[in-house]
Amino acid sequence: MLVFLAAALGWLAWRVLVDFKYDWQWADIPQYILHRDSGGRFQLGTLGQGLALTLRLSVWASALGLALGLGLALARLGASLYLRLAARSLVELSRNIPPLVLLLVAFYFFGAQALPWPRLAAFIRDCGPGVQWLAEAATVRLGDLDVFFPAVAALAIYEAAYFSEIFRGAIQAADRGQWEAAWCLGLSRLQQYRLIVLPQVFRKTAPQLAGQFISTLKESSVVSVLSLAELTYSSMKLAATIHHLFEIWLTAAAMYFIFNFLLSLLFARLERA
């Protein structure tokens, strides 16, 4: 598979070199991923920073998506008809709307017009440089919170639909004997979920959850339409600055690929451990 992929890319590169008369200039590219500043310390370049933001965005979206997905799964398996219908509707909505459109809707629902993000940013700024540094390290430059949060919300809702299906399947497939044993020991319904069934569900679905996280990392590129400088928008900006189109997009593709591939190897190893 990888060999085939490499061959296809090689053929494409050859076409570009020969037919398009493309003027390759790779030497400039690496500094945009990582470089040494005047003090000799390593600094992330714009592409490196973009990847870091892609990662932060995905971690937030996945964390919220996991929580929301679990809630939806429990609601769909629960006794309340109202909750079942509500959860079902949300899942169907997010599964049948393109992520890009979902993102734009979220932007108008959770963006600066709807929620007081500038005031929140000012509040964080007033808390002192330490708090501000922490908040920015965990999310994004304070001025971009009004875009960051809608982006996280849209991705989270989009992913929650998938997470909820994963959870629902695993909960339904849980051994009936586990419920019965927990029941007979006197555990409450909540305890049966929290102490017995969910820990097993998390363990069993870990590979799917990991796969969904990688999928979130990829989906997060739609956020570039909101001009949030994750890897894709960073690449666009770099393309407009240095005009080495092919090099930049090949680099961006390689960064996504290598990062996601390493991540999947890591998950596979963790799972075996």
């Binding site: 470089h35 500043d37 714009t46 920073q49 407009a240 600055t241 240095i242």
Partner: peptide, 20 residues
Amino acid sequence: GVLRVGFDIFRPWAMETRSG
């Protein structure tokens, strides 16, 4: 205390350095 300026990247009107 801050003037927020909107622009798009166009060489050489506005460009991004390697450190952002």
